[in-house]
Design a binder for these strands. Structure first.
Length: 526
DNA sequence: GCCGGTAGCCAC
DNA sequence: AAACGTGGCTACCGGC
């Protein structure tokens, strides 16, 4: 719905004004609003880029600063913005926010969300502490890894160019698609073209091409992608993010970044540091502690499935967790009607796919594709699954119904997610959109409750840590807390974290946590 | 050169 | 790629 003629900054301002108007806040008397109105009506808004516009509106004093930014020499800080520009803007911003308090508080009270707000308010300083603490990385390690990966990339490039018979930009999906499907004539039956008109070169497609590829170019491209991703996104990028004052990397956590109530991490995102692939794991060696300290990583075991058990009250699920059984093996046992100790690895893997898939609202179509079953077989297994876990079936049905009827669903803590799509004038005629909304609806209470629980744990934990220890929280990765702990505190703090996390909130099943320690983020041992 | 969309891919 | 949810980052690329 964005107007392409209005720069993003003006959009944000316009959105702010809309919110204020919705709550009956009169924005007319302050210069903030005047300024935004001017920006929106200024003919320059339609024709200039953001920085030109800022120059135009804010005058010559900003030009020098903006030039510095443009050359990568500076970031805007309040100290650099002329006081007569910053003061009215900041004052109006604060004034508007203050005036929003009564109507927002009223709304929260009506919806029973004051306690949730209190939790978020208490979490804020915890997040601030984590951001201030930052994470240490081994710069030499990253530099060496970068050099090693450069060599690998160069070799892969040569291999790919030789097979292709020409040089091209491997990172361009357009060019790569032309090489694979036009020049090398790899089979394209059943492959879908993507929006930009060429054939997709995504991993799944490349994997499917392996069988018909006698040249080895597919393997080389897959490896080139993996190495390139790692190098570009992490190995080369992270050392540049080190704060010269602290020598550490300080991420930003957004408390409102994820619609389910999860945190989001950015600049850099430290919630998606690789761990699954062999090469990705090596990267984690580069995350280190101060001398005399250790990492302590504590994560919730199967927290979303435990929450599912609690919410659905499904007898089988409840019993499995109360008896501390392996949930995926137990699921397989039920699914195949065999004793749990007879479950094979493949049967367990299959059950795991279903268990995780259902949290996200997976259907038989996807299950078939993931597991190689026919659609009919996948449907049979889904039916068997829901037959064996009737509580889950009821939950999915009831949650979809609630989303339609009430227009929202909520977590155990009352955190809501709204689904305006069910209210739209389209009247549910948009099948794809409503089905997506249904999947989002069944996922929200589970993912959101997990987010709520770990937030509670973080608040309690940080209070204890600040009162009694030098150990500090560094990162939250959705179901994991990473701490940096002086060695002499390690045993005590480990017990504290385990205790706080596992008792953060009482469910009808135990909250199990697993603690590991180590000198880097890879070699963590229980 | 900036901006935003797209493709692809990293995590939980 | 996809009828599996929540995010963020990089590279490319076309528009201005």
């Amino acid at each position: 719905m964005t107007d392409p003629n209005i720069p993003k900054v003006a959009h944000n301002a316009k959105f702010d004004c809309m919110i204020l108007e919705r709550y009956g806040i009169d924005v007319s008397p302050v210069r903030f609003d005047t300024m935004i109105a001017e920006w929106l009506t200024d003919p320059a808004t339609k024709h200039k880029g953001l920085k030109d516009l800022a120059r135009h509106r804010l005058g010559a004093e900003m030009t020098e600063i903006l030039d510095l930014i443009g050359r990568g020499k500076a970031q805007v800080t309040f100290a650099q913005v002329p006081i007569d520009v910053a003061a009215p803007y900041g004052a109006a911003d604060a004034d508007m926010t203050l005036r929003l308090v009564p109507p927002l508080q009223h709304e929260l009270r009506e919806k029973g969300l004051i306690e949730l707000l209190d939790m978020e308010m208490k979490l804020l300083p915890v997040i601030a502490d984590m951001e201030r603490a930052g994470v240490r990385i081994d710069v030499d390690f990253f530099r060496h890894m970068s050099q090693d990966l450069s060599v690998v990339m160069l070799k892969l490039e040569q291999t790919i160019y030789e097979i292709a018979g020409e040089t091209f930009n491997i990172n361009s999906t357009q060019q790569l698609s032309d090489i694979l499907f036009k020049k090398l004539q790899l089979p394209r039956e059943g492959l879908k073209k993507i929006a930009s008109g060429h054939y997709s070169t995504a991993f799944n497609v490349l994997e499917g091409l392996k069988a018909s590829d006698t040249t080895g170019i597919i393997d080389a491209i897959i490896e080139y992608r993996e190495v390139g991703k790692l190098k570009g996104t992490y190995v080369d990028a992270l050392p540049q993010m080190i704060n010269p004052d602290t020598g550490r990397i300080h991420t930003s956590f957004s408390q409102t970044g994820a619609i389910t109530g999860r945190l989001a991490s950015s600049n850099p995102n430290l919630q998606n540091i690789p761990i699954r692939s062999e090469l990705g794991q090596q990267l984690r060696r580069g995350f280190i502690t101060e001398p005399g300290c250790s990492f302590l990583s504590v994560d919730y075991s199967q927290v979303e499935l435990r929450i599912l058990a609690h919410i659905t009250q499904d007898e089988t699920l409840l019993r499995t967790f109360r008896e501390d059984k392996d949930i995926h093996a137990a699921t397989a046992a039920v699914l195949y009607d065999i004793p749990i100790e007879k479950v094979t690895k493949n049967q367990r893997r299959f059950a795991k796919t279903i268990n995780f898939g259902l949290i996200y609202g997976m259907g038989a179509f996807r299950l078939a594709r993931e597991t190689g079953l026919t659609l009919g077989e996948a449907e049979d297994y889904m039916a068997k699954y829901f037959g064996q876990f009737p509580g889950i079936d009821r939950y999915l049905e009831e949650t979809r119904r609630k989303a339609r009827a009430d227009g929202y669903v909520e977590t155990l803590f009352g955190r809501r997610r709204y689904f305006p799509v069910f209210k739209s004038t389209m009247g549910g005629s948009n099948r794809q959109a409503t089905q997506r909304a249904e999947r989002e609806a069944v996922n929200h209470p589970i993912q959101g409750t997990a987010a709520d629980i770990i937030k509670l744990a973080m608040i309690r934990l940080n209070d204890e840590l600040k009162a009694h220890y030098r150990a500090r929280l560094l990162l939250q990765v959705h179901d994991e807390l990473l701490l940096e702990v002086p060695l002499e505190e390690l045993d005590e703090v480990r017990e504290l974290v385990i205790d706080v996390m596992s008792h953060a909130f009482e469910l009808d099943v135990p909250l199990k946590v697993e603690a590991e320690t180590g000198a880097n983020w890879l070699e963590l041992k229980g």
